[in-house]
Every structure is written in structure tokens, then in C-alpha cells.
Design a binder for these strands. Structure first.
Lengths: 235, 235
DNA sequence: CTTATGTAGATTGGATCCAATCGCAAGATG
DNA sequence: CATCTTGCGATTGGATCCAATCTACATAAG
């Protein structure tokens, strides 16, 4: 039980401590992987994590199972867990999947959005812009997903949303990396405003705009990654 | 170590016992859930499973984590795990997701398929037809997915395939249920032949045909499910 | 008779202990 | 000198034990 473990679900006011230790651990470790604190290919040692969080290895092991299912780590028998490393084609594939799935769900959502939904999206967008200007990378990553998600809840497509969320967790890691490397998020910021505006008008063209938004993000990321890679090998 | 636990990966000949107990358990339990042996809403008790497989509760717990990540069970803290139960809208949503994702990957795959790929698909299809005529439900379920999968491997879209596999695991349960309830698989069998034929000709129309194939399967299932429900409540 | 409370049994969550396996280095052997 | 073997430390896998929590039933109060 460590002070690093904050309980989640801040939205439901009177719901505290309804998380088991493995879940809380998984949340914390996921955050640290997405932050880049645990780098690609880095091995995660059960004992080290356990002592760090002042608990036994058992909850750590269960947390590892969850992270493995989310695709953030891979663990081989008797050899431990390492942070996943994706080749660039697969990273792009993830963005293409997001584009396909998010466009689909947005189509459902668009006709069902209420003013309440839009107001909430706007609120999140303002928080996102604020976080970006303060260069709070972790918060930008989280709020970026929250904004996208807020546009989709009206669709009431639970399975689709769950799938998209899973992919977003994976791309989040690279989005944060991109924030450190480039200034490409400037244009993404403007695109977010445009997306919200189109949604307000229930303009169906927002779907294709969203597709471009996501695919562009993927391409920008790959560019940033490839330039980093050559500079990395040079150094 | 119980005789119920068979090691998987039969395709790679000299690869035995490279599975940890939790994984083997997860495989076995997943199979039993898909078979309908554990019904929807039924609680899974750690101790009972553990004694059944003659092991301690710990590997069971880790297996539960995997099954939960796959969406087959949900577990609440200090209240244990129960088999998931999906409302019909979400079941249909799963089929629609399959339709979208499988059509997408098939488009990639179609232009890259070699004769070798097609021969393999044909082999699997024959096994599938054989299993169906022998009314080996579990085998039909597994081979149905194997056939679909065999059409997609050429696409070399790892993330997409993983996503589709996850959804197929969930729909598999209902497909097997449908096999018990209806004879709708007869037409599916013919459609499989047609799909393979269109793939041989590299006919792009196979993509839309596949979409219809999957969506039809979903509708047939929902029909079967709704009639079962009314007869169930009547009895 | 209904509702609140409390206690016992069952079940899950977490910690500690022991066994199995892996990696690596030192030494033997050709 | 290269290669194989062997043994030890480190790490993971699994079992058992104890603590925390839930469910159900019984009992008492209104």
C-alpha cells in the first residue's frame, strides 16, 4: 500500500477503495509505461516492483497479467516480463484501426449527440488545451483520449468503445513520445476545435475529418520516430 | 496438473510444455465457457476450480485475470467471478465489429494470397465441413475461426488480426449455441465455399460477400436467441 | 410481522515459503 | 584456444497460511 497508488474513478463521488491492489498496481504501472518511465524492451522484475510498492510479489503478478492482456508487456515463462516494443508498421496499423473504428462510432454518435454531450466535450477540450500549454504531457495524453471518448459516448456502442479504448492505451504511449519530440500537436489542437464545431452542426463531414486527423497523427508520429531513430543510432 | 489440461500449439511440432499453468488453465476454462459448460451468469469459485484441476488457487486467480481481460468473465472484489452475459444489442455489435474489421483485413489479404495460402484454407474448410457433419460443436467453433483466420494471415496485419481474434473468442460462444439451436449453419457452409472460390479468383466482391456472411450470421443468431428466450420463459 | 443487527461460515485477497528454471561465469576437456 | 559442462545466484512459478470481506441466517427490537 504505497502513496503512489491513487484510487481511480474520480467522477463517481462516493466510490472509494473499490479497487483491488492488483488493479491499482496495473493502473500505476500502465501509467509509468505510458510515461516512458519504463522504456521499450526494459525488463520488469517482480521483486523490484513489489518492494517499491511495499507489497508482496503476488499482486504484482496479477497486475502483470492485466498489462500483458492490454499488450503493454510480454512475459515468457520463467524469464519475466519486458515492455513491448512495436515495429513502426504495427504502430501505423494501430492508428489505422483507430481511424476505422472511431469513424464508425462517430457516425453512430453524431445523430445522437445532445447539447449536454457537446458541452462536456468542450469542457474537456479546454482542459486539454490548458494542459498542453502547460506542457503537462501525461495530462495531455489522458485528456486527448477523454476528448475523443466524449464524442463517442452518445453512440451507446459499448463493445466498440471498449475496443477503441484498448487501442488508445497503446497509441497513448507514442503520442506522449511525440509531444516530447515535435510540435505537431499544434495542428492537432486546431483540428480538435474544428471537430467540435462540425459536431455542433451535426455535419457528417466530421467523420472524414476525424479520419484525416487520426491518420495524420500517425504519420507525424512515424516521422518523428524515424528521425529520432537515426539521431539515436548516430549518438 | 490434471489430465484435462492439454498443451496447445499443435502446429509447432516440438513445442510442448511451454505454457505456464495459469495459461493452460485459462485455455481450458475458456474452452469450457465457450462450450456452455459454464453458463452465463454462473459464478466461478476459485476453490472449486482449483480442486478440480488439482492445483492451488493461485494459478486459478491468474487465469481469471486473463479471462476477465478477454471479456469472458467479470470479477468484483471480494465477490468472485461470474461468466459474462451480454445483451443482444452488444452481441450484434460484436458481429458488426467483426464484419468491419474482417472486411478490412480481407481487402489487404486478397492481393497477397498465394496458392499455398488458399490450399491451407481449403484443407481447413474440409476439416470444418467434416466436423459439422459429425456434429462436433466445439471443433466446428474452433475450425470456423481457423478458416476465417487462414484467409487473413496473408494480410500481415498483426494488430488487426489480434483484435479480430479477441472478438471471435466472444462470438464463438454464441456461434456454438446457435449450432445447437438451429440449422442456419447449412447456408454458412455454402457461403464458406463461395468465399474460398471468390478468393481463388482474387475477386474483390468477396469483401462485400464476407460482410454479408458475418452480418447474416449475427442476425440468424439473434433470431435463434430470441425464440429460445420466449420458449425458455414459457417453460 | 417487518426491519435492524450481529454472528458464523464461506470465499476472496495478500503474504510468506519452497521448488523449478534460467543466465552466466568458472573450469574442464578436446 | 574453442567448446562443452557444471554449479551458483537470481528470478519466476506454485503451495500454503493468515487476514479481510461478504452472505446468510438467526435473533431481537420496533
Amino acid at each position: 500500500m504505497n502513496e503512489m497508488l491513487e484510487q481511480k474513478n474520480p467522477r463517481s463521488k462516493y466510490r472509494l477503495k473499490r479497487q483491488s491492489l492488483p488493479e491499482a498496481l496495473a493502473d500505476s504501472l500502465r501509467e509509468r509505461i505510458l510515461n516512458g518511465e519504463f522504456k521499450e524492451g526494459e525488463p520488469l522484475v517482480q521483486e523490484a516492483i513489489a518492494t517499491e510498492y511495499e507489497c508482496s510479489r503476488m499482486p504484482v503478478r496479477e497486475a502483470f497479467r492485466q498489462l500483458e492482456a492490454a499488450g503493454l508487456i510480454v512475459s515468457k515463462i520463467h524469464k519475466g516480463a519486458v515492455v513491448t516494443t512495436l515495429p513502426s508498421e504495427q504502430i501505423m496499423e494501430l492508428f489505422e484501426l483507430r481511424a476505422m473504428l472511431e469513424c464508425d462510432i462517430l457516425t453512430y454518435s453524431l445523430s445522437r449527440m445532445t447539447d449536454h454531450h457537446l458541452a462536456l466535450s468542450e469542457q474537456i477540450l479546454e482542459l486539454l488545451e490548458d494542459a498542453y500549454h502547460k506542457r503537462d504531457i501525461a495530462r495531455v495524453g489522458a485528456l486527448n483520449w477523454e476528448f475523443h471518448r466524449s464524442l463517442y459516448v452518445a453512440a451507446d456502442r459499448i463493445q466498440t468503445l471498449a475496443l477503441i479504448q484498448g487501442i488508445n492505451v497503446q497509441t497513448d504511449r507514442y503520442i506522449r513520445l511525440q509531444l516530447l519530440l515535435t510540435s505537431a500537436f499544434e495542428e492537432a489542437e486546431q483540428e480538435h476545435r474544428q471537430i467540435l464545431k462540425l459536431c455542433r452542426n451535426r455535419d457528417p463531414s466530421v467523420v472524414e475529418f476525424m479520419r484525416g486527423h487520426i491518420i495524420r497523427a500517425g504519420h507525424n508520429l512515424l516521422d518523428a520516430l524515424s528521425t529520432r531513430k537515426v539521431s539515436g543510432t548516430a549518438a
